[in-house]
Design a protein around this nucleic acid. Structure first.
Lengths: 213, 213
DNA sequence: TAACAAATACCTACTTCTGAGTATTGATCG
DNA sequence: CGATCAATACTCAGAAGTAGGTATTTGTTA
């Protein structure tokens, strides 16, 4: 008895990694991999499989759509979603759509292996949402501050703005006048050279300032 | 002559993959890997290396800070940055900070290998920014539309809003009145149940609607 | 064909943001 | 001590967004 696995992921390096890791494992055989959903489905018409390791963010045919097709056309195939998106809502959605497991890409190889065995034996593997650690959130922030000469207060306000607060609300929360917040905002816009809120948010995000894991 | 490489990445699966791929390559030996910048620096005190493969988004000590330390303390070590961030500004920044190469994680294994050889022989490897393909952007969009009953026009407008356009500008680009755009925006806010622009953007992003690679 | 959804367009009223100018206080640093 | 920066606070004016209502046209579908 050998579990036949197909991997669908647009990151070839990750596929190579998985293949290397899983090939050594007991009772697992890896079928040729796919780089998007379309390739995966084409492949399933040729060879059948027991389990699909599925990335969500793929070109051509993305993971969610692929998942739906798999569930309706190949209900007997187990699906293990492997993604970078650490969002509880998304995990719930994936669970609802009938996947059998949801793992993050920073999972250790042996956790992945045991997840595979669990899923094959009928268990579901949906881990708890992991709060991003302090370290993660620091990421580029210091760099960001240095580069654009932002002060600590300004960084704080960018965060609150991004969370949908108005200047008045921010003022109330920080116990300062809304005019003060407005002044800070103006300075931020000038320093970052953006002309409106959307620009500010996009910019902050593009520079790794607001990171979602 | 063997190139000694240390990999620093918090994604253990990727490390395993790299090790598997590179171990087979000619003239490359992989030293024990690190899961963050701090570990990497600790390791360099013990063993020296010729090249470091560096992820940017790591806990404890992120890639940029690690890069700076490496350049000042170990100027003879080559640095190949391997990341998911497909942003020209970031790549420029990394280049400026003295790295020798910048690759995306969806690179094929042999491209990575040849990049390693190039960097070791003194070349810099900074590829062009790759425009995300249509396929990439589709990602969750259809799902998003279905879930929140958004129309095609509304989705189009969310995108343009996110890019920092005002209603008037959007109207001009779509050859419709700014009032029409305003109406669409109002409907979008109602459907998504958010109260302002920041909320809209945050929401759209949290649901994978606006993906940056 | 009747019903409906989608896209279009306008109005009024109010809130919020943006840009420009000005000023005070406290901390830090040479 | 004097200079500078960060944080605070205010005013005025104009631009943009938000909330409500209403209405026409077009295309699709029951």
């Amino acid at each position: 008895m050998c579990v036949r696995i197909i991997i669908a992921d647009d990151h070839q390096l990750l596929i190579d990694g998985l293949v290397g890791v899983l090939n050594e494992a007991e009772g697992i055989s890896i079928l040729p991999s796919a780089n998007n959903g379309r390739q995966l489905l084409a492949q399933l018409k040729e060879t059948s499989a027991d389990l699909v390791i599925l990335d969500l963010n793929m070109p051509e045919l993305d993971g969610i759509k692929t998942l739906e097709v798999l569930r309706s056309q190949y209900p007997e195939i187990k699906i293990l979603v492997l993604t970078n998106y650490n969002q509880p809502q998304l995990m719930e959605e994936i669970k609802r759509l009938g996947a059998h497991g949801y793992l993050l890409k920073n999972t250790a190889a042996d956790v992945l292996k045991s997840a595979i065995y669990k899923v094959i034996s009928g268990e579901l593997v949906f881990n708890e949402y992991i709060e991003p650690t302090e370290g993660d959130n620091h990421f580029f922030v210091d760099d960001f501050m240095k580069k654009f000469q932002l002060t600590r207060r300004e960084v704080e306000i960018i965060r609150m703005v991004a969370q949908g607060n108005t200047s008045k609300e921010i003022g109330e929360q920080l116990f300062v006048s809304e005019f003060t917040v407005t002044t800070h905002r103006r300075n931020i816009m000038r320093k970052l050279d953006v002309k409106n809120l959307a620009g500010l948010l996009t910019f902050a995000r593009a520079h790794g300032f607001l990171v979602e894991t």
